[in-house]
């Protein structure tokens, strides 16, 4: 396991990004063939995407070459420390949970949960709960009551 982590740490991140970018640009090029290049009225909806994706691929190849031979930088240099990485992943996971939960629990509960998972890492538990509820409630009141945004609510109206 630690060998795999070491291997990832030494990986050329710019090159990895270059490959991913090329995959996406190539998908756009392949997909662009589904749209007409020319129609009887003139150039079709495939014209612009095809040229954009062709140039995108050319730029991607140049980038990949520079990433391999010139501007090399490895994962280890850009990754945050263990705690930082955990914080970043936590935020992403918390947003995903929030997205799936909100329609069922209503905004205040899901937002409080989202904020609590972040606050608990830096504040004592009682402060984290208090902050999470206060911030979500204030936001709910401002947006729902103040700006009439139809935020999802539960059966109790919050």
């Amino acid at each position: 396991m630690s060998k795999i982590i070491q291997l990832i740490k030494k990986m050329n991140v710019a090159a990895v990004f270059g490959v991913l970018y090329l995959v996406v640009a190539s998908w756009f090029l392949i997909e662009s063939f589904n749209y007409p290049y020319m129609t009887k009225f003139g150039v079709g909806s495939g014209f612009f995407p095809r040229w954009v994706s062709v140039f995108a691929i050319i730029v991607g190849i140049v980038y990949l070459l520079t990433a391999i031979f010139k501007d090399r930088f490895i994962f280890e240099d850009i990754m945050p420390d263990r705690q930082g990485l955990q914080n970043v992943l936590l935020v992403i996971m918390a947003i995903i949970v929030f997205i799936f939960l909100t329609d069922k629990t209503g905004f205040i509960i899901s937002a409080s949960l989202l904020l609590f998972t972040i606050f608990i890492r830096e504040y004592p538990w009682w402060k984290a709960i208090l902050l999470a509820i206060v911030v979500s409630t204030i936001c709910f009141l401002i947006f729902r009551k103040g700006f009439s945004v139809p935020l999802p609510v539960n059966r109790w109206g919050f």
Binding site: V91, A111, L114, L115, F119, Y123, L131, V135, C139, V149
Partner: peptide, 13 residues
Amino acid sequence: KLLYPVVLIIAIL
């Protein structure tokens, strides 16, 4: 530690 979570919830909203 207070600023970023608050901005996050505003961004989501």
